[in-house]
Amino acid sequence: MMLSGKARIAGVMGWPVSHSRSPRLHGYWLDRYGIDGAYIPMAVRPERVVEAVRSLPLLGFAGCNLTVPHKELVFPVLDQVDPLARRIGAVNTVVVTGEGALHGYNTDAFGFIESLREAAPGWRGSRGPATIIGAGGAVRAIVAALQDAGVAEIRLANRTRARAEALAADLGGVTVVDWADRGAALAGAALLVNGTTQGMTGEPPLDLDLSHLPARAVVADIVYVPLVTPLLAAAAARGNAIVDGLGMLLHQARPGFEHWFGQAPEVTPELRQVVLGQAASPVR
């Protein structure tokens, strides 16, 4: 549809930003719901991101998403930060209010839990411990999400132990496991999450022996290229339920879209195919 002078505008800021699939994702929803709006990629250098976010109300934007490395840099310019985003230490969604104020949110935690519940509906936080591999920004959101979902024991293994210990100190309630003991840390776990880029196309597979993992455990990966990583393939072969990384990307976009465009969007099989580039995007 053609944009009018009243079109709602949002976008994604990153450096680089050309890899982002968010324009394809939000563009699909805009066309599906017939919304007078647009979502655009914005390549913004890290040293200019505070200035760029501050300019959103002046330019008439409804808000924006933030990708690496901007998620931790924008706190000083925001008028209000959601408590969950403050706890995680990162903002990925900025909303411009009707008064022109800037509110920051983190929707990655929501995206992970919604993806987990969609792909593994039998999973509950009370089912048992979670073992997480990695200690990057996505893992911070995943830990917070699992804590809020009622997971009483979270085991964290990272190749660099100091980084895992820093995360545990910030969020609390996390047991840091030596990298050499990561396989043993799967014993009795109800959930395993790969929060690293290992297994992504062009990266080596995650080096993890699954022999200690219970057959009833759910295995999730934040990587979605390929959709079925070597970890997920190995888990499925031994009978574990698996959760691919695409669901987290799709579900984390829902709150922002609703804020900016006034429509609660749905995650559908067709959307998954469009975002993966396996189906044509609607023509705008």
Rank of each mutant, 00 (worst) to 15 (best):
residue 239 G to T: 03
residue 75 F to I: 08
residue 118 E to F: 10
residue 132 I to C: 06
residue 99 E to F: 01
residue 46 P to M: 12
residue 52 A to I: 01
residue 97 T to Y: 13
residue 80 Q to A: 15
residue 260 W to I: 12
residue 270 E to Q: 11
residue 263 Q to V: 15
residue 46 P to G: 08
residue 57 P to M: 06
residue 122 G to S: 09
residue 110 F to I: 07
residue 98 G to W: 14
residue 53 V to G: 15
residue 128 G to Q: 06
residue 16 P to K: 10
residue 84 L to N: 03
residue 145 A to H: 14
residue 172 G to T: 12
residue 80 Q to C: 08
residue 263 Q to E: 06
residue 215 A to E: 15
residue 164 A to S: 10
residue 189 A to G: 08
residue 139 V to K: 11
residue 283 V to K: 08
residue 58 L to F: 00
residue 259 H to F: 14
residue 182 R to V: 09
residue 241 A to T: 11
residue 153 E to M: 05
residue 41 P to C: 09
residue 113 I to L: 15
residue 51 E to I: 07
residue 83 P to R: 07
residue 254 R to M: 14
residue 183 G to P: 13
residue 8 R to P: 05
residue 49 V to R: 13
residue 139 V to E: 04
residue 275 V to E: 06
residue 54 R to K: 15
residue 98 G to C: 01
residue 119 A to P: 00
residue 123 W to V: 15
residue 11 G to E: 09
residue 251 H to P: 03
residue 176 V to M: 02
residue 60 G to E: 12
residue 242 I to P: 10
residue 203 E to G: 02
residue 157 A to W: 10
residue 197 T to S: 15
residue 66 L to N: 05
residue 10 A to Y: 09
residue 30 L to Y: 03
residue 67 T to D: 07
residue 200 M to W: 07
residue 256 G to R: 05
residue 62 A to F: 00
residue 32 R to C: 06
residue 127 R to H: 09
residue 248 M to Q: 02
residue 151 V to E: 06
residue 264 A to W: 08
residue 114 E to G: 04
residue 56 L to P: 01
residue 20 S to L: 05
residue 78 L to E: 09
residue 210 L to G: 04
residue 196 T to V: 10
residue 165 E to G: 14
residue 203 E to K: 13
residue 138 A to C: 11
residue 109 A to R: 03
residue 215 A to W: 00
residue 23 P to T: 11
residue 171 L to Y: 04
residue 149 A to R: 13
residue 145 A to N: 15
residue 111 G to M: 12
residue 153 E to Y: 00
residue 9 I to S: 01
residue 196 T to Y: 02
residue 217 A to Y: 10
residue 243 V to S: 02
residue 135 A to R: 11
residue 40 I to R: 13
residue 71 K to I: 08
residue 39 Y to C: 06
residue 169 A to C: 03
residue 215 A to K: 14
residue 87 R to Y: 07
residue 180 A to D: 15
residue 99 E to M: 06
residue 230 P to I: 05
residue 279 A to G: 03
residue 233 A to E: 09
residue 74 V to Q: 01
residue 97 T to L: 08
residue 275 V to D: 05
residue 52 A to E: 07
residue 195 G to V: 10
residue 212 H to A: 15
residue 168 A to G: 12
residue 126 S to L: 04
residue 205 P to E: 09
residue 146 L to E: 02
residue 207 D to H: 07
residue 140 R to V: 05
residue 53 V to N: 13
residue 86 R to I: 00
residue 280 A to W: 04
residue 84 L to Q: 14
residue 13 M to V: 08
residue 56 L to Y: 03
residue 102 L to Q: 04
residue 177 V to N: 01
residue 248 M to G: 06
residue 265 P to T: 03
residue 266 E to A: 13
residue 268 T to E: 11
residue 128 G to Y: 07
residue 10 A to P: 06
residue 136 G to S: 14
residue 106 N to D: 08
residue 258 E to H: 08
residue 273 Q to H: 03
residue 98 G to S: 12
residue 284 R to A: 11
residue 249 L to E: 12
residue 262 G to W: 00
residue 281 S to Q: 13
residue 204 P to E: 10
residue 269 P to A: 05
residue 21 R to W: 05
residue 199 G to R: 12
residue 259 H to R: 15
residue 67 T to P: 12
residue 222 I to A: 05
residue 107 T to K: 07
residue 149 A to S: 15
residue 241 A to Y: 00
residue 265 P to R: 01
residue 141 A to S: 15
residue 48 R to K: 13
residue 192 L to D: 10
residue 121 P to L: 05
residue 280 A to G: 02
residue 276 L to G: 13
residue 168 A to M: 07
residue 1 M to I: 02
